[in-house]
Design a binder for these strands. Structure first.
Lengths: 116, 116
DNA sequence: CGGTATCATTTCGGCTCCGTACCATTCAAT
DNA sequence: ATTGAATGGTACGGAGCCGAAATGATACCG
């Protein structure tokens, strides 16, 4: 079923979630990194660098560097595709799943508090 | 009225909006800049540097620099408070209002497309 | 007045990110 | 075996942002 929101509620929701993220001492992800992370965790695998770059409309180095950063945060991991060793498959991690889950909880909590 | 969302819907919504923003050729705002901008446009004025810094839980230079950036994008404007010339009052602009309005439209559109 | 507090900005060194261009590896076709 | 295409990664110069500390301007208060 569709969600119904009024513009003021939509904007207020985004503000509240952004404020919560800024205040939190969790590592700050850029909008691009967040889009990549959520795509990895929401869209069906496999995920390759090129595929992600195409989906985001950005260049490959953007993906490579974002994976470097999020990899060092243990939010994602990289593995060579053994069937075609040119490919790198991006996989989820336990830490990443927890991060995404916690982020979803923040959105839910803030949406429940929205004023009329 | 509260909004009801399931976690998968909340995360999918955030992904779709982030993807739309990354793909768009509009200037990329950081999460902090977005939080500041939405606060200026949603919370009642007046908005000072110190007040925004306190609300975001960040240092003042963060606000000053964000206002520099968004000011050059004409999304906000600064004016000295004539009653207490130490203060800088941050004000909305026509361009900023349009930007925020358009952003709200994106959220609404993506929320309407959410899968079950 | 003089001294202190308040507010915003600037400065500094350091870090991350950007896009373009180039490189290394692997595969597939000949 | 050789060539060409495809995939990821790397090097580089430039730009933006970070926090801490110093600076400048204004207000308050004795």
């Amino acid at each position: 079923m569709s969600i119904f929101m009024r513009p003021s509620q939509a904007l207020r929701l985004w503000q509240q979630v952004s404020l919560a993220e800024v205040r939190a001492d969790t590592p700050d992800l850029t909008m691009r990194q967040m889009a990549i992370l959520l795509t990895i965790y929401l869209d069906p695998p496999p995920h390759t660098v090129r595929g992600l770059a195409a989906k985001l409309g950005v260049t490959k180095p953007v993906i490579t560097r974002a994976l470097d950063t999020m990899g060092s945060l243990k939010l994602v991991s990289r593995h060579r595709d053994e069937r075609d060793r040119r490919n790198v498959l991006v996989r989820r991690t336990v830490e990443g799943a927890l991060f995404v889950e916690r982020f979803g909880d923040v959105i839910i909590a803030k949406s429940a508090e929205l004023p009329l």
